[in-house]
Amino acid sequence: MIVDFFFYLFAAVLLISAALVVSARNPVHSVLFLILAFFNAAALFLIAGAEFLAMILVIVYVGAVAVLFLFVVMMLDVDFEQLRGGFQRYAGVGAIVGAGLLFELAVVFGGWTLAPNAEKLRLSPTPADVTNTEALGRVLYTDYIFLFQAAGMVLLVAMIGAIVLTLRDRKTSKHQNIGTQTRRTVAETLEIVTISLGAGTTESGGFLRPKAPEPEPQPEHEAAGGHH
């Protein structure tokens, strides 16, 4: 009874917040509703007994991906009113594209047949004596190891792509060489001058004076990760 109540509660909140994601006027509110939707989906996973998936959903999507979404949406300052302005003009084209997609989906579902063994596989329950984290690990790292590795490679390629797009050397940027900094000693940085009383302030000052920094050699600059 309590489980049913919570199922309908979470499902209802999930659907409402999903609808609000697309209809909210403020993009930041949209992202926050998206986060709420993720949360309720995680709660539904918990009710289904998939605690590992629930936690991973929260950690990966809510804790990392949505943070970046929120970050970008807050920084960009997109004017959504302006984007919505052409609604009347593009409604016809949109309707045609939507109808085409719906027709294609209908064709696909019309010719849908299940592979003979699929139903059996789908219904195979978690082994009774292990937690579902372990059960997941047992199939993921044995039967599906190639798919798992392939997913990892796809993510790696995406990551390299993002780095290539953003890494560019502006000639004005200065790279810090931590090794050189930590190797510096007091002896080669400061010059201690003893000057008799009254003679100090005229030319050099009787203070600890920093030595003029040596000009930074060009090769190090390139070795620090810049393009040519």
Binding site: M55, V58, V67, F71, N132
Partner: peptide
């Protein structure tokens, strides 16, 4: 069973209050 993941999930949500 997934206590450590729960802790990690909750601590990674802390950033939302701040943002």
């Amino acid at each position: 069973n997934v206590g450590i993941l729960y802790l990690f999930a909750i601590s990674s949500l802390g950033v939302y209050g701040i943002i």
